[in-house]
Amino acid sequence: MSGAVLQVEGLHKAFGGVQAVADVSFAVSAGEMLALVGPNGAGKSTCFNMLNGQLAPDHGIVRLDGRDIVGLRPSAIWRLGVGRTFQITATFASLSVRENVQMALYSHAGRLRSLLSRFGTAYRAEADGLLQQVGMLDQADRTCGVLAYGDLKRVELAMALANQPRLLLMDEPTAGMAPRERVALMELAAGLARKRAIAVLFTEHDMDVVFSQADRIIVLDRGQLIAGGTPEEVRANPAVRAVYLGGTH
């Protein structure tokens, strides 16, 4: 399949006899926003963790630009051009916001192995540029440990972008934000995706964000994909209404 940045085929993962993810296949193209939705415990995070190398799938293939990346460590997958944000934010709490982004920039440039130079003198402007994009420049000097949850999500996005990624994995990127901020952040992501031909895979509980921002939606329930298609198709899908959406949407 041409144009697919990420291609997943027959992904399986079981934990102690419980099938967390079963036979999941999908693909994301450059510039596309794909939403992965489903109830908590459906296997969304397990899926994500297999895509960036944190978990090894029991079997299945994950291809990035045609290359099988199963078995690679997360650090190696990043170097191939994958940026990720976490459901429970993971940033360097004792470092400042700017230093967090600088870490990612230093890493991207392969300049972390120096023992005697002083950290933080390089990539300052680049870091500030990224922080400006996500609306965090005014907090660049604050320590990440004291930031609000929604702001940490933005720092994570800036760190992911520092890699000039081919693929962006965003696990609940807008949790903790006000409705307007949510849409704004996802519009930013969608804009970048289109402009730089980044493939974006994201999970999200806010159906308004999902239906307004996603190009396509896939629905996971008890580890299995039960539906996939455009927002309109998914909204109308009776199986999705039965297990996930219920009567309100």
Partner: peptide, 29 residues
Amino acid sequence: WRVLFSPFGFVLRAGRDSPLRAEAIGIDL
């Protein structure tokens, strides 16, 4: 002390704060 404030030292601190994030930005911790 000098090493602590070098990129190497920052990597160590970053890895202590969040090994997950360190790996996710390409650091072989």
